[in-house]
């Protein structure tokens, strides 16, 4: 069952011009993204820094107003058919920076209870819920409820943030690099906690990360983003096993191998990601792609099916696209 449908989501940030009229332009942070999330699954979102992952997360919660696009939650359009407050109760987010996402003046318990109180739960009940959630995320309420964020470690703070996100009993939790700032050992603990909570509360995750191993471990389906667009999307085993898009391949070959004999010798990607300010037409990746041809610069490249549920935005996978490596019509 589809829980969340996102269609044509777009956000461009105009840049200010200086006094002489120089500069300007538009950052194409998220540029027409369409996907859906099924009830109970984990959707992984990967991509380099600056590819629009975090902007997308904030767009989903309407922390930033999208320029275009429709978000449907449980079949109802957020903002029109479903009030924003209701949507925000059903969708919650865990941020990357565990310290900045907790109010330093509030106790851990008050931070967690804030959301339910806003949604009309009596204060005492909200605190009760906060303590039971603290216990659930592995923080003994008697020891931790009255503490302030600066008295906790990074892992403990992130557990509090998870508890805070769960306090409204959401359907979907968006995890925006939620474990990226943690130590590896703590990261594993928190990931396992997330998996347990998912089963227990019947949650659906949108798991945003730049760490491919973690995404592979967590996700049922994966979206690969490049400069505000989806490069490749599909079931995790298919995207990781039968990688189609040259960008995804480059990204995956950048994963360090555990086997010293199979060390990566060549840098898989040359240069920084191109500037998202006023990108040229055609494939966004063509400047760094080994297989780029003239045809790649013409027109928009759409996500096309490449096998069951696996979609790729690359001309090489599209029969009859005009790219020399494209499969023939018969194939």
């Amino acid at each position: 069952m589809t829980l969340l449908t996102v269609s044509g989501l777009r956000k461009h940030f105009p840049l200010k011009k200086d006094l002489l009229g120089r500069g300007g332009g538009t950052v194409h942070a998220v540029d027409g993204i369409t996907f859906d999330v099924a009830q109970g699954e984990t959707l992984g979102v990967v991509g380099e820094s600056g590819c629009g992952k975090s902007t997308m997360a904030r767009l989903l919660l309407r922390l930033i107003e999208p320029d275009e696009g429709l978000i449907r939650l449980e079949g109802r359009a957020v903002g029109t058919q479903m009030p924003l407050t209701e949507a925000r109760g059903k969708m919650q987010m865990v941020f990357q920076d565990s310290f900045a996402s907790l109010n330093p003046r509030l106790t851990v318990e008050d931070s967690i209870a804030f959301g339910p109180i806003v949604h009309g739960l009596p204060r005492a009940q909200a605190r009760e819920r906060a303590r039971s959630l603290l216990a659930r995320v592995g923080l003994e309420p008697l020891r931790f409820a009255g503490r302030y964020p600066h008295e906790l470690s990074g892992g403990q703070r992130q557990r509090v943030n998870i508890a805070r996100a769960l306090a409204l009993r959401p359907k979907i939790v968006i995890l925006d690099e939620a474990v990226s700032a943690l130590d590896k050992s703590i990261e594993a603990q928190v990931l396992n906690l997330l998996l347990d909570l998912k089963v227990e509360f019947g949650l659906t995750y949108v798991f945003i990360s730049h760490d491919l191993n973690v995404v592979r471990y967590m996700s049922d389906r994966v979206i690969v983003m490049y400069l505000g667009k989806i490069a490749e999307a599909g079931p995790a085993e298919s995207v990781f096993g039968d990688t189609r898009h040259p960008y995804t391949r480059a990204l995956f070959s950048a994963m360090p191998s555990m086997d010293p004999d199979r060390r990566t010798q060549q840098p898989p990607l040359i240069g920084d990601p191109p500037n998202p300010i006023d990108p040229p037409p055609g494939c966004r990746f063509k400047g760094r792609c080994a297989h780029a041809e003239d045809i790649c610069g013409r027109g928009d490249i759409t996500l096309t099916s490449a096998g069951a549920e696996h979609r790729v935005a690359c001309l090489m996978t599209q029969p009859g696209s005009g790219h020399s490596s494209a499969p023939g019509k018969a194939a």
């Binding site: 925000r88 969708m91 987010m93 806003v118 949604h119």
Partner: peptide
């Protein structure tokens, strides 16, 4: 945390 509060509705 201000964004998180906004996200709480």
């Amino acid at each position: 945390y201000v964004e998180a509060a906004r996200a709480s509705g």
